[in-house]
Nucleic acid binder design. Structure first.
Lengths: 167, 167
DNA sequence: TTTATCGTGTTACAATATAACACATCGATG
DNA sequence: CATCGATGTGTTATATTGTAACACGATAAA
């Protein structure tokens, strides 16, 4: 977990030093690619950096727009989707299914399940620890007979900041 | 919960009497619409019935195809999406975000969170009780400061039947 | 009978994602 | 050095999922 998150909450404080988030995410990505002998090409790195531009999920076509900023040519959809597939495969980003959008992974160092808190007002998405849920998951495996391989949780509601604003 | 599910598991047995599932789902829908003073029109009922045609999520365009069977004219997308919106609103169906598909709700009598086990092999989707997860959710609310309003869980893996086949 | 409301039909289009094939780069190997 | 294979990208076209906008029709209340 990045150390510059709000001490009172797992949500990033609106005033936090976000450049530090971006930098540490890119550093982690370079390390992971080195370890797994994968190439973090310019396109892939740029897409990852743009995704880390905020703590809000961003769609593939918004990424295309962002990539086009200051460039002569727009890239075509397959270029972005290939980068996204690569980053997803390595666990550097997650897909938020309810939004058709993508967000940086807080801790790509190991594979893990995908638990997110998503603010319905400002779109902030915060990854959270699946740990506390695993007892219930074990019980469910037993009961259901399913061999559960993947867990995708999306909690929707108001983030601490938007709650204050709405009072 | 329908009574004709596999006694050993919350997953419906491949050989279960599925017509009973359809019938009870439609009966429950009629009752709910009466209670809420909503109209279960022909289109809406037909869509619900088609969704209950299996325990597998079905996409909007597959529903359009199914609606067209034996008819002279195809309905246009808005017709299906309006019916889906109505059924979603009333809680008669759920949307499986990871599949862009829709499935009947096992228990529409009260609002509830959306927890599903989904077989990656045969697409079987089984709704499950959020109860065992709520202690962890409470803890998460405290910790995160989020006002969680909605929970969407999708577990992916192999259903009991496909596990046997894959051995 | 008129009017308001609700549900549907129809056309067009937006948003998200992929298939298929061409080309380019680059390191390994003969 | 030459070339071969693997990987990444460019390009065009298209598939899939979902909505906007406006017209029409039925029904029931005033």
């Amino acid at each position: 977990m990045p150390s510059n998150l709000d001490a009172q909450s797992i949500a990033p404080h609106p005033d936090h030093d976000h450049q530090a988030c971006i930098d540490s995410a890119l550093a982690a990505a370079r390390e992971l690619c080195r370890d797994k002998q994968q190439k973090l090409t310019k396109t892939r790195e740029k897409v990852l950096q743009l995704i880390w531009g905020s703590h809000r999920p961003i769609g593939a076509y918004s990424l295309m727009d962002a990539l086009a900023e200051g460039e002569q040519k727009r890239v075509a959809p397959p270029t972005v989707y290939r980068a996204l597939d690569f980053l997803l495969e390595l666990g550097l980003i997650h897909r938020i299914n309810s939004l058709n959008a993508y967000i940086g992974c807080q801790d790509p160092s190991h594979e893990h399940h995908c638990y997110f808190l998503i603010c319905t007002s400002c779109n902030l998405a915060v990854e959270t620890d699946p740990g506390p849920f695993q007892a219930a998951v074990s019980q469910l495996k037993q009961q259901s007979g399913f061999a559960i391989r993947q867990q995708n949780m999306e909690f929707n509601g108001l983030c601490p900041h938007c709650r204050e604003l709405s009072e």
